[in-house]
Design a protein around this nucleic acid. Structure first.
Length: 492
RNA sequence: GGUCUCUUGGCCGAGUGGCUAGGCACCGGUCUGCAAAACCGUCUACUCCGGUUCGAAUCCGGAAGAGACCUCCA
């Protein structure tokens, strides 16, 4: 399994066999959030995507160091490097310390990610905590002659880089074309070339997030943090760098420039990019103002939402599309995802209660497991895995009806693999997994169902229906089957 | 304008040079006191036009439409 994983590398635009730089170890760096707003569905996509990747790599037996940064400085407002720091602007508006704003949104992000059952990364470094590393790296780039100081700011010399190393290999950008078509921006005069990007920016007097540096009191440029932090925690050469497609240019392209000069090597072996969420065919993003926050999904409190959607519904919805494709939001699609997901949870419950039949099985019912592995090995094809879980569900239901039979060994394997893919790899949250009252609840439910059965035998439909109705009210669904009544707890 | 990507049925979404993706919805049936679930079955596809091929939704070319990026965004 382990040596069959194929990943799509944005750098080569091809699927490549995944072989880690150091046997059995994987370094994974993902661009995390800029914390100046409530986390929205767009933030959930890379988080869930790389959570899936993190989980699967671990399942394959790799020891993974997963680094996901938090950008709490240096991200500028407006279209130019001349803008005001986003965090600082928000802070002034709300009369708060910048770090207070950052902390507030970091907490919001963590809460939302926990609800989505996204595993915390191994290290979650903050840009503000790595100013020294960033300054050191800028100095290195200056020493090597690929940056220049201008008015207290430091800029990367893109033209020189292009001449010697070739600029734009990740995004397919050609430098000359960037010149001719670049927008006219304010304050470009400090730069020798409009394509140059800031490594360090001198702070204006009213700028409140600033640090001392050899060049000025200021703050680091947007791109340098990821290069500095990935180098610090994963080394100069590491396996996977991920993030949203919108970061491809200029952010990741700039990272390549920085690491190539500062470290002398191109640091990343595989670039992985998740696609965007769209809403009415348009990208959901902060700038367009068409985003829906995760909390709004969880509470249903948004004009575009017909109802509330549980965190697991959101997660399942995201996993039902391949991470490299766009995914269009709609109530209809979310409701469909929710129903499908509930079907899988119900099937898992049924699986636990399935009667074992030790008559010899005509054929094994585990083909789907192999297909799940094939799907995951093919660039993490979660929608295919989900399709296979539905196939497994069909088998479970057939078994419950006695149409097919599982022997003891087979049912153990079946259950183990269903749990593996649904809970461990897709990362769907287990409901009541470590509930110690499980047995008690089961016995109480059996008692209630027996009473109801007696009422039914007596044709006392009022009592029978009342029991079912009231159980329904507290989130338990009763189903009458040929074999007698069964029950299940509603998800959410 | 430049670069790139996409276009699958009512909706969402996989995929492969020839074999049903899957889910949701709809319709019919089995089951059923009713309900729900489940199961069985039916029904809608591969944007258009050329080319390659015994055979293309799948490869190539062109057109149309949509989207992303072009120093804010995940």
């Amino acid at each position: 399994m382990k040596n069959k994983l194929v990943v799509h590398n944005t750098l080569t635009k091809k699927k490549e066999l995944f072989t880690p730089i150091h046997k059995d170890y994987v370094g994974l760096y993902v661009c995390g959030p800029t914390v100046y707003g409530e986390p929205h569905l767009g933030h959930a996509r890379p988080a869930v995507t790389f959570d899936l990747i993190f989980r699967y790599l671990q399942h394959l037996g790799y020891k993974v160091r997963y680094v996901r940064n938090i950008t709490d400085v240096g991200h500028l407002e407006n279209d130019a490097d001349e803008g005001e720091d986003k965090i600082a602007k928000k802070a002034r508006l709300e009369q708060l310390e910048p770090m207070e704003v950052a902390q507030f949104y970091i907490d919001s992000y963590h809460i939302a990610m926990d609800m989505l059952n996204v595993k915390r990364p191994s290290i979650e470094p903050r840009a503000s905590g790595h100013i020294i590393e960033q300054i050191e790296m800028i100095q290195k780039i200056l020493d090597k002659g690929y940056a220049y100081v201008s008015e207290g700011s430091v800029y990367f010399d893109v033209e020189k880089f292009d001449k010697n190393y070739g600029y734009g290999k990740l995004s397919g950008r050609v430098l000359e074309e960037l010149f001719s078509n670049t927008r006219t921006l304010d304050g470009q005069d400090e730069k020798r070339n409009p394509a140059d990007f800031a490594l360090w920016k001198k702070a204006t007097p009213e700028h409140i997030m600033k640090w001392s540096s050899p060049w000025s009191v200021g703050f680091p440029g947007w791109h340098i943090e990821c290069t500095a932090m990935s180098t610090k925690y994963l080394g100069e050469h590491f396996d996977i760098h991920g993030g949203g497609m919108d970061l491809l240019f200029p952010h990741h392209e700039s990272e390549i420039c920085q690491s190539t000069i500062a470290n002398g090597v191109e640091s990343v072996k595989y670039w992985l990019h998740n696609n965007m969420i769209t809403i009415n065919g348009q990208k959901m993003g902060k700038s367009l103002g068409n985003f829906i926050t995760l909390n709004e999904f969880f509470t249903g409190n948004h004009a575009l939402l017909e109802k509330k959607y549980s965190p697991m519904t959101i997660r399942f919805f995201l996993l039902q599309a391949h991470y490299r494709g766009t995914l269009d939001f709609s109530n209809e699609a979310l409701i469909a995802a929710e129903k499908g997901m509930n079907k899988l949870y119900a099937a898992f419950e049924t699986l636990s209660r399935l009667k074992i039949n030790d008559t010899p099985t005509e054929k094994a019912h585990l083909d789907w497991v192999e297909r799940c592995y094939e799907a995951m090995n093919d660039d993490f094809n979660s929608p295919k895995v989900i399709a296979e879980l539905f196939e497994a569900t069909r088998l479970i239901n057939l078994a419950q009806q006695g149409a097919i039979h599982f022997n003891h060994e087979e049912i153990t394997e079946f259950k183990r693999n269903f749990e593996l893919f649904f809970f461990d790899i897709l990362g769907m949250k287990r409901e009541n997994a470590e509930n110690n009252n499980q047995d008690l609840v089961e016995q109480l439910m059996q008692l209630i169902l027996q009473i109801r059965q007696q009422a039914k035998t007596d044709k006392n439909w009022e009592i029978a229906d009342a029991i079912r109705q009231q159980l329904n009210t507290i989130g338990i669904t009763v189903k009458d089957t040929k074999e007698g009544a069964t029950w299940e707890k509603d998800v959410n």
